[in-house]
Nucleic acid binder design. Structure first.
Lengths: 198, 198
DNA sequence: AGACGATGTGTACGCTTGTCCACGTGATAC
DNA sequence: GTATCACGTGGACAAGCGTACACATCGTCT
């Protein structure tokens, strides 16, 4: 029995041809690529979010990324859109489920402590988006929409001026948390929120 | 007269050898590279701040950048250090020159309006630094020091808790200005600052 | 004055990148 | 049942990258 015949019998191609992976049925690969892109950005930054890195993390061949997205920018935009949508939706949820301003502040403080400040991944993604948006018009629209939705959500319980100041304060708290080695405690965050509204 | 002889007479090398630029006397090229690096970062981002881009902007040969800085990271760190030093120094100056808390708030509002919010370049450099610091330990130290100096400067006129909240609010206001198409007016900024301190 | 080392200059190398292409293959529409 | 085309797969390509290097030149120190 020749080596080749043995190889073929096992479905293993001869040594010269390096093995072609069998075709997979993978109907929502596109969505998976978007989700994986977010993972890669969170871990390695936009700078490290290359076609190859994303394809490897999603376990698809390189060509697949350019098949589903006409450019890398388009893939990144899709990813950031998903992220912004998710975070904006969370804040809207909190604000909708709460009866009055007092409860809104409580909810906001809890939301910050639980979903944002403790969540390194969300922090990184937010800052990555901010910076990426500075130079890519397509992403500008994403941040604009996100900011608008956040402010609208806050305006369910606060007047527009307060909502805007609160929004900016939250942004600053998040960013400081991101940068600081000496993060604020949930109580300090609470204190700041209550202080600017009264 | 041969073409070669004519060329040599004019100091122009023969067509085959593409002209070597005469050596320049350029004693503070190193500082100029740092300043130029900041320009390039402001215009094209850290991602666009390559050896070649910086060398071209500073009008020096490529090899000169690797002679003066052992790596690109070292050059970027030097550049960001200069920027942070400059901005921190400005705030310290404002806070030192002012007698009481009321005047400090006024100065802070003016500083924001004049030196930060209207200054796209400073805004971009700050955010670029924040993000770059997230992944480069050497830059973490730069942002840490900057934040610490800012807070110390504010503590000349505010108690530590207020100073910290004020610092975060300023950060948020700056970032929102950076992202928003609908920026806050100086009066709105003033209002927010005064509100969180009372 | 002469040497020498710091600095200026141009270029080469190996690597990674985004994008494109040629070619299978099987789910789906008729 | 068959044709079609959307999708999967692997590899090629030119461009740009950080870095290293060989060599030129001129302040400076003795």
């Amino acid at each position: 029995m020749s080596a080749e015949a043995a190889g073929e019998a096992l479905g293993v191609p001869p040594a010269g041809e390096p093995a072609r992976r069998p075709r997979r049925y993978d109907p929502d690969r596109r969505e998976r690529l978007v989700a994986t892109a977010l993972d890669v950005i969170a871990e390695h930054g936009v700078a490290g979010a290359t076609h190859r890195a994303i394809a490897a993390a999603a376990d698809v061949p390189l060509g697949s990324t350019t098949y589903h997205f006409s450019s890398l920018d388009e893939l990144l935009a899709a990813a950031f859109t998903v992220h912004a949508e998710r975070v904006a939706g969370a804040l809207e949820g909190w604000m909708r489920d709460v009866p009055d301003q007092r409860a809104a502040l409580d909810a906001l403080a809890r939301h910050l402590a639980d979903d944002l400040l403790g969540n390194e991944r969300a922090l990184v993604l937010a800052v990555e988006l901010y910076l990426a948006a500075a130079r890519r018009p397509a992403l500008r629209a994403v941040t604009q929409d996100w900011m608008l939705r956040s402010r609208r959500a806050l305006e369910l319980h606060f007047d527009p001026v307060t909502a805007r100041e609160l929004d900016a304060l939250v942004e600053g708290l998040v960013l400081h948390q991101f940068l600081s080695t000496d993060p604020m405690t949930p109580e300090q965050v609470r204190h700041a929120l209550f202080r600017i509204t009264r």
